[in-house]
Design a protein around this nucleic acid. Structure first.
Lengths: 340, 340
DNA sequence: CTGAAAGCGCTAACAC
DNA sequence: GTGTTAGCGCTTTCAG
């Protein structure tokens, strides 16, 4: 391993001058710098970040915690986070984990120790005390697309309530009165919030008679398919005319289940999703859904985290809970109009 | 920031004892260790990895370079790599970059400096000298699903030639004689290899008369759709009866293009993909495709990289170019048989 | 503009 | 079993 002293020796200069040259400080003669860079290049010198960060008391890294990459939502989110993280001069660590609640795993601790802050987008129950755990180790965390009750937790969210309102208004506007939610959950944050909002909005529209039609499950293609198939086995009078899936992937499963029963979308059953992932626009699905501003989410998450990392530990910043508005995208899964 | 000395002071012990306790060395009295852990827990102490790695001359991190997360292949690969990387005790850094050729960007150098090795799964031309660049900085690299000509580059590949053979044999077995490849490329590694193999295998089957039917493009849903649509605009006599897409996502685009023209899959046009991503099994597409052993790829890549990292720099390991076999998965996009 | 020296938080000898 | 000491490769005073 080539060190700055090696470069210094080879260039006949002191180690500190090499250090200065590499940080582009202005107190180095232009030709001195040139010579140093030339020698460094020849030797294959790379500044040792570990040593640098030892002094800085910072790692220059931000950890992103996600569950998996099966749901495309995470891929898009990670991609946008990646851009922002490097824009702010950090490197991105990825931890795949589904720790939902309290204690941190050894694996997670290893990542924590090498990051200045964490973006949390993995499973978290509403009662999660994860934020406390992060704070204990002095690492700021921000929850993205996860809702937890802890009032000290920073978060960047999407207005699930508004999105649910847009979807249900759209459906009722088309004449639908019996709407079933597929893939609901009352434990996981965010998915949980969508479930609650569904109940609320349905009630506001006077459509909750006999209890809302809620089918619990996980936000996966498989559950979308299976649960919808089961709904379609009901006697026709008890069947919904529209299916509102917890997210787009689940909605895709729902669409395929409808088709597999020889029924049509949207003529027999309308289907809506949530997230607006790329697949939602593919002609085979052409899902009416709620668009999420991924780029803005990533930006505000990293920006907030950066501010907390940069602020001296004595200045106490106010907790931020950002909620981004969403908008409806109408496609062929609810209407037969020429789609977008 | 809490350091091991703080813990030592609070516990009335020396710093080195704290260090020993945290590394589970056997020369620490059980109750001493217990007390240390208790104090550390209370103080929120986390061993400083930067300092640790400064001594070890290693970062404990492996960088994974990919282009994006739009194509699900990358998501699956990263997920599997993540598992392996942490199984081997490293942390995973993700760099999103499409540097295909020679020089490393400053961003890339920053990641390089904080990793012990790199898994390269981003765009690389066959003539890429990237491997040389990595070597220059003393960082072993391994190319996954990328083919570059550099004979000193380690790689883990999939047998594209074999896969192409399986697909074409399957199609000719079903009576297809005119097969078009959609999304071909002769610059990018891997995709390039699939293109070459297509030409070769078609020739072996005596189906290259008049030149192979190759439509160049990028491996995306959009190109799959557009290029296929254009093919279908040809006079019927010049139309292929089967479309072989460069990968599954492109194949999905092809399927939708066929359907959009009021034609049926596979009755009018058969479609095959490559990669076997989850979407390929969805009933809407039910793609006949080539399954790639993602888990094995990730395992052999990380294992090889780890061996190179662990081996002292003087022991020269032989270049490894692993090629994993693949297998055919037959679904409804080519046959009307009950599908898997 | 450049050099010398101290020290970041840890590990790894070496003492006792 | 535990403490002492000397660095790892940098950044950062402080001199000159």
């Amino acid at each position: 391993m080539v060190s700055s002293s090696d470069v210094a020796a080879a260039a006949g200069l002191s180690q500190s001058t090499v250090s200065r040259a590499f940080r582009n400080l202005d107190n180095v003669a232009p030709d001195t710098r040139a010579r140093i860079l030339e020698v460094a290049e020849r030797l294959g010198y790379l500044p040792n970040e570990a040593a640098r960060h030892l002094l800085r008391r910072a790692t220059g890294q931000i950890a992103v915690v996600i569950e998996d990459f099966i749901n495309p939502t995470y891929g898009i989110l990670v991609a946008e986070l990646g851009k922002e993280i490097s824009r702010y001069g950090y490197r991105m660590l990825i931890v795949m984990s589904d720790l939902a609640d309290g204690e941190l795993t050894p694996d997670m601790l290893s990542y924590l120790s090498m990051s200045d802050g964490v973006v949390f987008a993995s499973a978290a129950s509403r009662e999660s005390t994860l934020n406390q755990s992060f704070m204990k180790y002095g690492k700021p965390a921000i929850f993205v697309l996860r809702e937890i009750n802890d009032p000290t937790a920073w978060s960047v969210q999407v207005d699930n309530r508004q999105g649910m309102g847009l979807l249900i208004e759209h459906l009722t506007g088309l004449g639908h009165r019996r709407i079933a939610m597929v893939g609901a959950s009352d434990t996981l944050g965010s998915v949980n919030e969508r479930t609650d909002s569904f109940v609320q909005v349905m009630r506001e529209h006077g459509l909750a008679a006999g209890g809302c039609d809620i089918v619990y499950g996980s936000p996966t293609y498989e559950d979308g398919f299976e649960l919808t198939k089961r709904i379609l086995e009901r006697p026709e009078a008890a069947r919904p005319t529209a299916i509102l899936a917890i997210d787009d992937i689940t909605a895709c499963g729902a669409v395929d289940a409808v088709l597999s029963q020889g029924l049509r979308v949207p003529d027999d059953i309308a289907v809506v999703g949530f997230d607006d992932v790329p697949i939602a626009q593919w002609p085979s699905y052409a899902l009416t859904t709620v668009h999420i501003p991924y780029e803005e989410l990533a930006h505000s998450a990293v920006d907030a985290l950066h501010k907390r990392i940069a602020s001296s530990s004595d200045t106490q910043l106010d907790v931020q809970r950002l909620i981004h508005p969403v908008n409806l995208v109408v496609r062929r899964s609810t209407t037969n109009l020429p789609s977008t």
